[in-house]
Design a protein around this nucleic acid. Sequence first.
DNA 1: CTGGATCCATAGTGATACTG
DNA 2: CAGTATCACTATGGATCCAG
Lengths: 118, 118
Amino acid sequence: MPEFFHDSKLYYTPIEFALKHIGGTWKMPILWRLHLRVMRYGELKADIPHITHKMLTSQLRELEELGMVERIVYPVAPPKVEYKLTPAGLRAVPVIEVIMKYGLEKIREAGVKYPPSH
Amino acid sequence: MPEFFHDSKLYYTPIEFALKHIGGTWKMPILWRLHLRVMRYGELKADIPHITHKMLTSQLRELEELGMVERIVYPVAPPKVEYKLTPAGLRAVPVIEVIMKYGLEKIREAGVKYPPSH
DNA sequence: CTGGATCCATAGTGATACTG
DNA sequence: CAGTATCACTATGGATCCAG
């Protein structure tokens, strides 16, 4: 597993590079919702518990730069902005699904009360 | 996706809980190597590029507490300690495999020179 | 050989105020 | 409604030194 440079940053493993695209606390929850349907900023904000304004905007910007999410601005007042998955974003969905299933398995193992997945 | 408490810590999503077990820069590289074979501390240290002493020990401790890795101490001088995956650790391997494949796909997309996977 | 402890720099995150 | 800027706090990680 040799390291490599990309965008002036050093990566050590393919895993680290993968997590650049889907890692962190919020990227996967965001991508997951957008794969269900196109959503506006305010809808995402309301639908993802505990995410702060700053985190949502910064993560959306990063996902946009990574080419995972497309930002569609409607030039109206008040502003309307929609976010949708790009083909690249869509390809991350099966990976997220695997991780989510694993998380749910771990939650059940830990004996935490948790509603059935959906 | 309701939040829940575990070990006095608040988790927001199954994804976050999954990443507690396999997340961060080093947990997956460590688990991956240990699934190939039982390894000693020094072997891991030599085999994982750029990992520091502190990171390797702290991550091994965490993985041990999470029940993912078993620590086998041989009472000899000088000390000999082996690490091996537990059944729980083994269950994480397919997940890691999916993430690693995704990472390799992303690396190729990015056009980074990188040796074939193995 | 393995591993614990300390100090310190940096990055990530939350709260808040402000703008078109 | 959507987005930006700033500040303070915390977590993370690297370097180094010490120990059984």
